[in-house]
């Protein structure tokens, strides 16, 4: 940690921030640079190559997303006049082109990773069309399980966070559909069980992400992966905890509430001290505030109803949200930009 502090100080110093047009204009407006210096500054920004790198990546991601959306829309249309064999040929040709392209470009290149992500999406499209054509009567969750299984090796070799998150989403959808479409396991038939199971599953994914990022896997280090997974863990546990707070005392709610308490305690220690991250702390505190308010609201409206209960509850909402915001504001100012990793 100590080795990183000078780097952190350097990175957060205003002079070491990327310069933009507004900064140059601000300096001119404040009388700190001359008109000639302003014009030279703006001119040097315009030829800065960062624009082309940004455009290159943005065109790739947005363009690929639109083409994939177009393919999904096309097969969702379920064109009756198109023979089934043509549909399969079309998808499989696209799949092979993407997979071959990824191999040719190499998985170090962003375009190679995006091609492999596209191939993984096309596997899902292929399975959906298979279900359309053959009407096998299989439950929808089986398609998602198969999808997750078929692309698993690609997920492992791609070293691409977006593909990893796609795989996680597919497994989450598979589990939810399985819970809905299949009888819950014996002795496990509580209603909110699926929330706890998914929280554990996503918690394992988060632990893997943190372990990988700590071991220097740069492709996992983007903070968005942490935030997406942590938010899902907290959200999955908050739902049963709210139900528990308002008096639903089933096993699932109890497990969810205990799980949330343990998760928030662990999350606090980790995101406050081990890997400071104010946004992650914020998710936890928002969840805690909601559950506490649900509990107080239940108790208050049982004690007394009418205008006074709403007035008091409104004030309590303000107190709790102010306290949470005060704490987070303080933590954010202590951590500075270290709390918002890139």
């Amino acid at each position: 940690m100590s080795n990183s502090k000078p780097e952190l100080a350097k990175a957060t110093h205003p002079l070491d921030q990327p310069v933009d047009e507004q900064t140059v204009r601000d300096l001119y407006a404040a009388g700190l640079i001359s008109p000639a210096a302003r014009d030279a500054g703006l001119a040097s920004l315009r030829v800065d190559p960062h624009w082309w790198r940004w455009a290159n990546r943005s065109l790739l991601f947005v363009g690929a997303a639109l083409v994939l959306a177009g393919i999904v829309f096309f097969f969702a249309y379920n064109w009756a006049r198109m023979p089934a064999v043509a549909k399969f040929c079309l998808i499989e040709t696209g799949l092979w082109i993407c997979a071959f392209g990824a191999w040719r470009r190499g998985l170090e290149a962003t375009s190679g990773k995006v091609l492999l992500l596209s191939a993984s999406m096309l596997v899902g499209v292929l399975l959906a069309v298979y279900g359309q054509v053959y009407q096998t009567g299989a439950d929808a969750f089986e398609i998602y399980v198969l999808w997750a299984g078929l692309i698993f090796l690609w997920v492992l070799i791609a070293r691409f966070a977006a593909l990893w998150i796609l795989w996680l989403v597919v497994t989450n959808v598979a589990a939810i559909l399985c819970w809905i479409q299949v009888d819950a396991p014996q002795d496990f038939d509580f209603y909110f069980g699926i929330f706890s199971i998914l929280a554990v599953w996503n918690g394992l994914a988060l632990a893997a992400r943190e372990y990988g990022a700590a071991r220097g896997l740069a492709w996992l280090a983007g903070s968005w992966t942490r935030h997406v997974i942590w938010f899902s863990v907290v959200a999955y546990l908050t739902v049963p905890a709210i139900a528990f707070a308002v008096g639903e005392m089933g096993h699932g709610e109890l497990v969810g509430a205990i799980g949330l308490a343990l998760t928030l305690a662990g999350g606090y220690v980790y995101f406050r001290h081990r890997a400071p991250d104010t946004a992650a702390l914020g998710f936890g505190i928002l969840s805690l505030a909601i559950v506490v308010l649900a509990f107080i609201g239940k108790w208050l409206f049982e004690l007394t109803d009418g205008a006074i209960a709403f007035l008091v509850f409104g004030l309590i909402v303000l107190v709790i949200s102010s306290a949470a915001a005060f704490y987070l504001r303080r933590v954010a100012s202590i951590l500075g930009s270290a709390g918002e990793p890139d």
Binding site: A55, L59, G63, A65, L66, V67, G70, F74
Partner: peptide
């Protein structure tokens, strides 16, 4: 609008951006 038309719009838009890239 039919999904077929929408699919052309989406895929066509993506193709324009990928062609520019």
């Amino acid at each position: 609008i039919s999904l077929l038309y929408k699919s052309w719009v989406m895929a066509g838009s993506g193709a324009v951006l990928l062609a520019a890239r």
